[in-house]
Design a protein around this nucleic acid. Structure first.
Lengths: 256, 256
DNA sequence: GGGGCTGGTTCCACATCGTAGAACAAGGGC
DNA sequence: GCCCTTGTTCTACGATGTGGAACCAGCCCC
């Protein structure tokens, strides 16, 4: 929290973060004066920072008692971060095992408004064409990850069907009915397969990761060049993925 | 997150919070350019905010990949807030019941370097001399709250004995040996009593709240004027407090 | 009930410091 | 190797953040 340690520091921002830090650290609502005394900053300045932080919902101003405490925005960001962080940590060892077993890329993704977002990825050392990167997005309906999650959504399929279905490759499913039938299959089988529907020459096997309520918070997939994945190997991989996903889901408190 | 909604807004702070918001919301590390495109702010500006947020440890700059993600300071603040928030929520109904049963003030406090800090407090409607307020601190050794927590510390008593013991009233225990013996008693009985040791004419009964590891994360107490608390009533209250604390501890995952 | 005090809000004039365009450097992919 | 994308540095301008001081509003205490 020192002001030094590099140039390009914007002082108002730095000082406001000190205020945020102090308030959150206390664990109880604090007053303007308390903060001023602790931080040794001019009263007016701290006042404005508290106002700004409150306007952004990072803090909350209790008008009645005239005290400042942690705000809703801060809490919601913290929750999102913590959940994803926890998911990554739990999934990591399972992903590593899968990658080492099959020597193919293993992906972890979440759903975000009709698209999958890759939040983690493990690649075998050997050179290969990477189809995606962490942070990238693909349409949900063209990936095994997306289909795996859609199948376990409370209003299964409604998500994908609500939008039109962009055609990524010649193989991409663009017919809502066909997609719906596939998603029904996925729900029965417990895994999704996609062959060249998202990227020519690439295939994916995807499985959902469920939380304690059975909601598909994420999905994990193995992606490989089509030619390397013979049917028998695909079955073996699908079983391995299902096992790994079940163990992760159990860690998250899922019953089944 | 709108810039309007009141005067006294410091714009650099507001905009930097937008950056923090965006990064944390993504769930994966992001680049400078991604952030710029999303927020429609000048590149230089976003660059400096990212630098500043990183310097304050609210974000973390992964030099290798040149990406920004949530930082350690943010995570630690979030954890502190979440734990205390959860504690308050769980304790609240028990505290209310106790207050309504005995018509006396009920306190919730945590330990912070040889002092207790009140993090919540429920008072009966009738006028009474309030001995403390939320956020206030008292020496641990002069309060039932402090003694209750000390008794269940891994290195019981070491905390209090490491510092000298300020004399708050004529009754305050300032002898380390005497205090240690009392704390041993507390561990056996499961509750602590203090009569006029912190405030003349006021007595307190305190019980520890333990987490899953058995660590005393907080303590709860009933505080009342001495004259109102006859010995029999004190015993009844102590039992009620022990029961309430046990239920709260169980909620936190404690076994016993 | 008045007076003084503490804690919060508003005002204002100054110059600091944040701003953003543009130029530069570095890296990565084709 | 070359281009293009992405991150970093520079600089001159003036908007805007700053903080002292004045102003209020409760509240406690005589």
């Amino acid at each position: 929290m020192s002001k030094s340690g590099g140039d390009y520091i914007v002082l108002p921002v730095m000082k406001a973060l000190q205020v945020l830090d102090y308030v959150a650290r206390q664990g109880h609502d604090v007053t303007l004066t308390e903060t001023v005394q602790e931080l040794r900053l001019p009263k007016t300045t701290v006042f404005r920072y508290l106002q700004t932080l409150s306007a952004a919902q990072f803090l909350e101003h209790d008008l009645k008692r005239d005290r400042y405490g942690v705000g809703s925005k801060f809490r919601s960001l913290a929750r999102v971060d913590q959940e994803l962080q926890g998911l990554r940590d739990i999934a990591q060892p399972e992903m590593r095992t899968l990658m080492e077993t099959f020597h193919e890329t293993v992906n972890l993704a979440v759903l975000s408004e009709n698209e999958v977002v890759y939040i983690d990825m493990l690649e075998p050392g050997r050179p290969l064409r990477a189809n995606a990167r962490i942070g990238h997005r693909h349409p949900a309906h063209s990936t095994s990850l997306g289909k795996a999650m859609m199948a376990f959504l409370p209003d299964a399929g409604a998500l994908a069907l609500s939008s039109d279905l962009p055609q990524r490759t010649i193989n991409t499913l663009t017919d809502a009915d066909k997609l719906r039938r596939q998603v029904d299959d996925v729900r029965r089988r417990g895994y999704a397969i996609e062959v060249g529907e998202n990227e020519d020459g690439l295939m994916c096997i995807g499985v959902p990761i469920l939380d304690r309520t059975g909601y598909p918070v994420a999905a994990m997939s193995l992606s490989a060049p089509e030619r390397r994945m013979k049917p028998e190997l695909t079955m073996v991989a699908a079983d391995a993925l299902k096992g790994a996903a079940r163990r992760i889901s159990t860690h998250l408190g899922a019953q089944h």
